[in-house]
């Protein structure tokens, strides 16, 4: 944690043009799960602009090493070894320290470790597919994993998900809560994917595609992909209308 007073002002209004609308019928599950009424707009109160702290002490040594955190002793999962790293920032470009970053993914064959998953690709006995980390004072995070495989899913008759890693990010306020997915540079399935195409703006989609980062690659070990994540920014406290004593 930075040795500064925590910020207490509301967040910038969310720019919903950067996000998928709720109703995206080409992604069929959204049809019955999309609210139809207008959202009620509300400037953040203490109930939304505050949030819990996740201490680094909660983490175990291998929480951010998906190559080792489920592997049997002396074993490792099959697949291309990669390092994923980047910064969690807010819309002002400030690093978000202490952010909880949780990630989950399929194995190299495109199979998730889940009892409702039926894809015929095999489970990897050494791969759980889940990890977590907390950003440092500059908002930086990293984790090691296996490159996930693409997989088919029941939506259209022949829809495939591009290789992706799911991210859940918890910044400083409940209103900053975000779940998203990271895609990999050069994957030809990205523009074909109905879930990717829920995002209307191509420039917004590009901000979910992680580039290969040769400078962070570990020679003779693993390639690196860089994935920066941007959470909502906070309004400046300097110009707040505040009551005496606040």
């Amino acid at each position: 944690m930075k040795n500064e007073r925590p910020e207490t002002s509301p967040f910038f209004a969310r720019d919903r043009d950067q996000h998928p609308p709720a109703y995206t019928p080409w992604y069929k599950t959204s049809v019955l799960r999309s609210p139809q009424r207008a959202l009620i707009s509300l400037e953040g109160t203490a109930s939304e602009i505050t949030g819990p702290v996740f201490g680094h002490s909660r983490l175990n040594e291998f929480d951010n090493d998906l190559i080792l955190n489920y592997a049997r002793p002396g074993q490792m999962p099959i697949g291309p070894r990669i390092l994923v790293h980047g910064r969690v920032m807010d819309e002002r470009g400030c690093g978000v320290d202490g952010a909880l970053v949780e990630m989950w993914q399929a194995n190299a064959g495109g199979r998730y470790r889940h009892k409702k998953e039926t894809y015929l690709a095999p489970l990897d006995p050494d791969f759980g597919g889940v990890g977590r980390t907390i950003t440092d004072a500059d908002g930086y995070y990293w984790f090691k994993t296996i490159m996930p495989g693409p997989y088919p899913w029941p939506n259209g008759v022949n829809d495939w998900r591009p290789a992706h890693i799911h991210f859940s990010i918890f910044g400083h306020g409940f209103a900053q809560r975000l779940i998203t997915q990271m895609y990999f540079e050069g994957d030809p399935l990205i523009p074909l994917c109905p879930i990717v195409r829920t995002i209307p703006d191509p420039a917004a989609i590009s901000r979910l595609i992680a580039p290969l980062d040769m400078n962070a690659t570990i020679p003779m070990d693993m390639r690196a992909y860089k994935f920066d994540i941007v959470l909502r920014g906070r309004r400046s406290t300097l110009f707040e209308n505040r009551k005496e004593g606040n």
Partner: peptide
Amino acid sequence: LKESPSQT
């Protein structure tokens, strides 16, 4: 910066 887009 722009907020990262959400995905399901």
